[in-house]
Nucleic acid binder design. Structure first.
Length: 677
RNA sequence: GGCGAGGUAGCUCAGUUGGUUAGAGCGCAUGAUUCAUAAUCAUGAGGUCGGCGGUUCAACCCCGCCUCUCGCUACCA
């Protein structure tokens, strides 16, 4: 394996339109922090980079909604996020932001280099333009009636009512979200990164040279590469972002995904004038910690940018984690289904390490995992308190009791002490090996083994029984126990830095470096120890129930909102209604449409004729169970091809309380063809 | 529908190139113990390794089919 001279470690930039939650922590920041703290203890040269991603349309929308500037929005969240990371002990060397000057300059320079090298391709296309405000409209800035469900306020990229993804030109009666005017299609020029051209070299680089990447990352990349890459636009018509540094690009900014990863570079620039060696020297190991939603950017797009800029190194690894769920449900910012870091820090003061421990021990390294408060409590009480805290407390209390808090001199060393030394060496190696291969769960499990070893040592040797008869033996036992405490403090520091600090204070020593732990002499004989205080405390049922209660309330208020009945749509004339030709019909045949999950091909007897209708109900009904079903059908809807089958009408459906579709139907005495009015 | 990742003890996870009785932590049961935050230590009970079939002297591990979960993608008039 290659030996690197230094490390550049980045963690995904959190988007500055909301606070950070446990999902972000477990997936990205806790593992990245463990990795960096470990490297520093090993004496490696490492920079740990973080920062807020502050551009993009969602931030401008939030700003507009709140009647403030985008800068106000990102200031608020940037400061909140930065503070909570600091308080949580995420040891960034710099936590920067993409709205600052250095970043704008760096991103523009990067773009210009690609542009001047002729790497970018230019394309002119039509896009909606607001003539009142004189600006192009991003997809999110266009509102209109959803062509699928009829909701009035669908966005140009998605309808939030029915969840369909849309393109702006599909919207019925599109209007500008800014001025409310009817937008017009207008030409605009944009620049693209020709990913299709890079496909071969990317395939080789990932699929051949990086077989060691995690299976989820490797597989996802393979999936993208196999299905073929398309050129990707790197510019947008917007006014919030990094301006495109070209004269012909007035009112255009770099696309947020293009500027955001460059933020890693700008942050390093701000950190040190010597930044280039961390990004351009092949002896530097570049590692990106991200969540699985970011794989394509960090494995395909950003490396393409770095490679074709020409002077940068590529990532050595991209250890992406899966997702963390909360009490069985997906974490969701919009549904407030999350444990927010800033709230945790307030509600559990001094317990940063408990959360760090739980999130690492249960990290979604190989598959999605679930965070539960019950598990949080159990891990605190029966692992941190009972194993780690308890061992340290026992060793210290005994030393104070028998030797006035001074480290006794070891006398005769037995086989037992030797086997302990050997086991510690094995554990240390196991931790190193696991961390270096991004297996933090396993590394933490091994780190806890030192305390397990200590507890067993004390139980086996029983110093409290033999002190009267053999104080010399007790001296040896406690010397070793105290050394174990010091070793634990060092080897668990990457995972539990606050606890290690506390323990160093109790032991009355300075923080040590990693390699010293093998010697078993971190604390000299006769050294005076401070009075023991508890490293961890029990968390009782009431505390846990309070948190669960809080989540239940969130759930209730979410359900209430779900039951909110959509407001009445605007008034129409009778003529508008009379245009609809609604009839009663009967389903004669039904079959699944091949290669489509949601579609059924139905043959309907409308009374007038027998016709084919394709309907998106396959998730809720099997073909057999709906044959003979009386339905209400809109028969004069313009026919449309779906999956190659022409659909001649639309079946009316309603959603029940659980979101399942139900037929709008009538009793049997209505014949097919009966008009609905 | 296509692609990707996963389905191993109650829970969270290990299982190296296929090789004898499938492992760990937590939980549980029993016993021991009291220096320690009812903490600790020992022992034990729990698994037809998602299902079916195949290759092999031998499969959790290789191949095929099926099924469930998560993600990307197509589709939902």
């Amino acid at each position: 394996m290659k030996k690197f001279k230094r490390y550049t470690v980045t963690s995904a930039l959190p988007y500055a339109n909301g606070p950070v939650h446990i999902g972000h922590l477990a997936g990205v920041y806790v593992p990245a922090d463990i990795y960096c703290r470990y490297l520093r203890l090993k004496g490696e040269d490492v920079v740990f980079i973080g920062g807020s991603d502050e551009h993009g349309v969602p931030i401008t929308l939030r700003a507009r909604k709140e009647g403030v500037s985008p800068q106000d929005v990102v200031d608020r969240y940037h400061n909140l996020i930065k503070k909570s990371f600091e308080d949580f002990g995420i040891s960034f060397d710099i936590y920067s932001r993409t709205s600052n000057k250095t970043h704008h300059e760096t991103a523009q320079e990067f773009f210009l280099t690609l542009y001047n090298k002729g790497e970018l391709i230019e394309k002119t296309e039509h896009q909606f333009y607001d003539e009142v405000e004189n600006q192009f409209l991003a997809d999110r800035y266009i509102l209109g009636t959803c062509p699928k469900c009829g909701a009035e306020d669908a966005y140009g990229d998605q309808c939030e009512k029915c969840g369909s993804s849309l393109s702006p030109t599909e919207l019925i009666n599109p209007r500008s979200a800014i001025s409310g005017s009817k937008p017009v299609l207008k030409q605009t020029k944009h620049w693209y990164l020709p990913l299709d051209k890079y496909e071969q070299e990317l395939s080789h680089w990932i699929l051949e040279e990086h077989k060691e990447w995690k299976p989820n990352v490797y597989g996802q990349c393979k999936s993208w590469l196999d299905s073929g890459l398309l050129p990707r636009a790197v510019t947008r018509d917007l006014d919030w972002g990094v301006p495109v540094p070209l004269k012909e690009a007035q009112n255009k900014v770099l696309y947020v995904w293009f500027d955001a990863p460059i933020g890693y570079i700008s942050a390093t620039k701000e950190l040190t004038p010597d930044w280039e060696k961390y990004w351009k020297d092949p002896d530097t190991k570049l590692v990106h910690f991200i969540g699985k939603d970011n794989i394509v950017f960090h494995c395909i797009i950003f490396p393409s940018m770095l490679k074709h800029e020409g002077s940068y190194i590529l990532p050595d690894n991209v250890p992406a984690n899966e997702f963390l769920n909360l009490e069985g449900d997906k974490i969701s910012t919009s549904r407030n289904w999350a444990v927010w870091l800033h709230e945790y820090l307030e509600e559990f003061p001094g317990k940063q390490d408990v959360l760090r421990y739980v999130l690492c021990a249960n990290a979604p390294e190989t598959k999605d995992n679930d965070f539960t408060w019950k598990d949080f409590q159990t891990r605190n009480n029966s692992e941190l308190v009972a194993i780690y805290g308890n061992f340290v407390n026992r060793a210290l209390v005994l030393t104070h009791k028998y030797f006035e808090g001074k480290v006794p001199e070891p006398k005769v060393i037995t086989e037992y002490e030797n086997s302990i030394k050997e086991e510690v060496r094995r554990i240390k190696l196991a931790i190193e090996n696991n961390i270096e291969n991004y297996r933090f769960r396993e590394a933490l499990r091994e780190a806890m083994n030192i305390s397990r070893l200590g507890n067993k040592y004390l139980a086996d040797t029983e110093p409290w029984k033999i002190f009267k008869t053999d104080p010399e033996r007790v001296a040896t036992i406690l010397y070793y126990s105290i050394q174990l405490c010091a070793i634990t403090a060092v080897l668990t520091e990457p995972f539990l830095p606050f606890t290690s600090n506390k323990l160093f204070n109790i032991l009355n020593i300075k923080k040590n470096i990693w390699e010293e732990t093998e010697k078993f002499d971190l604390i000299p004989v006769n050294h005076t120890l401070n009075k023991p205080e508890l490293l961890f405390e029990q968390i009782d049922d009431a505390t846990i129930e309070k948190q669960i209660e809080k989540l239940l309330k969130t759930k209730e208020s979410n359900q209430k909102q779900m039951k909110n009945i959509a407001p009445q749509k605007e008034t129409i004339n009778y003529e508008d209604f009379a245009k609809l030709d609604l009839r009663i019909g009967t389903i004669l045949e039904a079959e699944k449409v091949p290669k489509a999950d949601k579609l059924l091909k139905l043959t309907i007897d409308t009374g007038l004729d027998k016709r084919t209708v394709v309907s998106g109900i396959a998730e809720f009904f099997t073909p057999e169970q709906i044959i003979g079903q009386k339905v209400c059908i809109l028969i004069n809807l313009a026919p449309r091809k779906l999956r190659g089958i022409e659909s001649q009408g639309m079946i009316l459906m309603a959603k029940d309380n659980d979101g399942r579709l139900k037929f709008v139907t009538v009793n049997d005495t209505c014949d097919n063809g009966s008009e609905v009015s």
